[in-house]
C-alpha cells in the first residue's frame, strides 16, 4: 500500500513537471513573442525593452522557466499587466463561482450517471435501456455552450424561472446563489453525465457477468438487487479513475459555461486574459488548473487502493 502511494506520488510529480514544460513552451511558441503579443506590433521600442526587462524575457529560456516554476511554488502567479492585479488574489476572489459550478456538476452528474448507467445495464436487452442510449448520445453530441444558450433562452428568457446570468455569492444569499448556478450546472452536467453514464453502463455490464453476481441471485437477490448491492461496488474500481478524468472535463466545461452565463469565475478570467494577450496570466492559470486535476487524480489513485481490499492487503502493487 505504501509503495502504491509512493508510486502514485512519483507519477504526480513527474506529470506536473512534464505538464509545466508543455504549458510553458506552448504558450511561448504559439503566442509568438510575448511582448509583441501584449503590446501589439506598433509598440514603441522603449516600452518593448522595458517590458522585456520586467518580465525577465532577456534571460535564457531555461532560467525563465525555472523562475516561473519557483514563483508558482511560492504561490506567486505573477501580475496581470493590463489590469495591474495579482493573479493569485484575483483567482481566489473568483474561486466561488467556479467551485460552485464544478462541485455542483460533480454532485449532479456522478449520482445521475450511476443511476442511468446501472439502469441501462440491468435492462441491457430491453427497449427501455434505449432511452438512456438516446439521452447519452444527444448529451455527448451537443456542445456545452449551445446547451447553455438553449437553457438560458428556454428557462431564463421564455419561462422566466431562473436567472440567465450573473452570480450571487453563497455567503450573501445561499438560496439566490444556488438559483443563479442551476442553469449553468445543468448545462455543464449534460455532457459529463452522458459520457460517465456510458462508462458506468460498460463497467456494470462487465460486473453483471461475474460469477459472484450469480451467487448473489442464487441467495435470493433479484437482478436489480444484485446489481445495486454487489455490482456498483465492484464496478466502482474502474469508475473512480474515470470520474477523476471527468473532473477535468468539468473544469474545462466551466470555462465555457462561465462565459455563456456571465459568471465571474476563473474560466472568465482565463478568457479575459487570453483576449487581453496576457501570456503570463494564462500560463499560470493553466498550470494551476492542471495541478488541481493532477492532485485529484493522485487522491483518486490512493482511494482506489482503499476501495479494493485486495490492493489494500498487498505490499507491492503491480498496476
Amino acid at each position: 500500500m505504501l509503495k502504491h502511494i509512493f508510486r502514485s506520488f512519483f507519477t504526480l510529480i513527474f506529470a506536473a513537471l512534464v505538464g509545466s514544460v508543455v504549458v510553458f513552451v506552448l504558450l511561448r511558441q504559439l503566442g509568438g513573442d510575448v511582448v509583441t503579443a501584449m503590446l501589439g506590433k506598433e509598440a514603441a521600442p522603449i516600452d518593448v525593452s522595458y517590458l522585456r526587462e520586467e518580465l525577465g524575457l532577456n534571460q535564457p529560456l531555461i532560467v525563465q522557466y525555472l523562475n516561473w516554476l519557483g514563483d508558482i511554488a511560492r504561490g506567486d502567479l505573477g501580475t496581470s499587466y493590463a489590469m495591474k492585479l495579482d493573479v493569485f488574489t484575483e483567482m481566489m476572489r473568483r474561486l466561488g463561482p467556479t467551485a460552485m459550478l464544478t462541485i455542483g456538476g460533480l454532485i449532479v452528474s456522478v449520482p445521475l450517471s450511476l443511476i442511468l448507467g446501472t439502469y441501462s445495464a440491468i435492462n441491457a436487452k430491453k427497449i427501455r435501456s434505449g432511452f438512456v442510449d438516446v439521452f447519452t448520445t444527444v448529451g455527448i453530441a451537443v456542445p456545452t455552450f449551445w446547451v447553455g444558450l438553449l437553457f438560458a433562452l428556454l428557462f431564463g428568457v421564455r419561462l422566466g424561472w431562473l436567472p440567465t446570468g450573473g452570480y450571487i455569492p453563497f455567503t450573501e444569499d445561499p438560496l439566490q446563489s444556488i438559483r443563479s448556478v442551476i442553469l449553468p450546472v445543468a448545462a455543464l452536467s449534460l455532457g459529463v453525465t452522458s459520457v460517465f453514464t456510458r462508462y458506468v453502463r460498460t463497467a456494470m455490464l462487465d460486473v453483471m457477468n461475474e460469477d459472484f453476481m450469480r451467487s448473489a441471485m442464487a441467495r435470493g437477490r433479484t437482478r436489480r438487487g444484485a446489481a445495486i448491492i454487489h455490482g456498483v461496488r465492484n464496478a466502482s474500481i474502474p469508475l473512480v479513475t474515470v470520474a477523476a478524468l471527468q473532473f477535468g472535463q468539468l473544469i474545462a466545461g466551466a470555462v465555457v459555461v462561465e462565459n455563456v452565463f456571465v459568471l465571474p469565475g476563473i474560466g472568465r478570467l482565463i478568457v479575459i486574459s487570453t483576449l487581453g494577450r496576457e501570456v503570463v496570466v494564462v500560463q499560470s492559470l493553466a498550470m494551476v488548473l492542471m495541478l488541481i486535476i493532477l492532485i485529484l487524480n493522485f487522491l483518486v489513485d490512493i482511494a482506489y487502493g482503499f476501495l479494493d481490499p485486495r490492493i489494500r492487503d498487498k505490499e507491492s502493487v503491480d498496476v
Binding site: R219, T222, D308
Partner: peptide
C-alpha cells in the same frame, strides 16, 4: 417471474458453484 423466483432461491433452494474464488464478491 424473477421476483417470485428470488423468494425460492436462497430460501428454499440453496446453490453452490464450481469456482469459489470467483463466486464470492471480492469486495464484501
Amino acid at each position: 417471474n424473477d421476483r417470485e423466483m428470488s423468494k425460492v432461491r436462497g430460501k428454499r433452494i440453496g446453490f453452490v458453484f464450481q469456482d469459489p474464488a470467483r463466486s464470492l464478491n471480492p469486495m464484501m
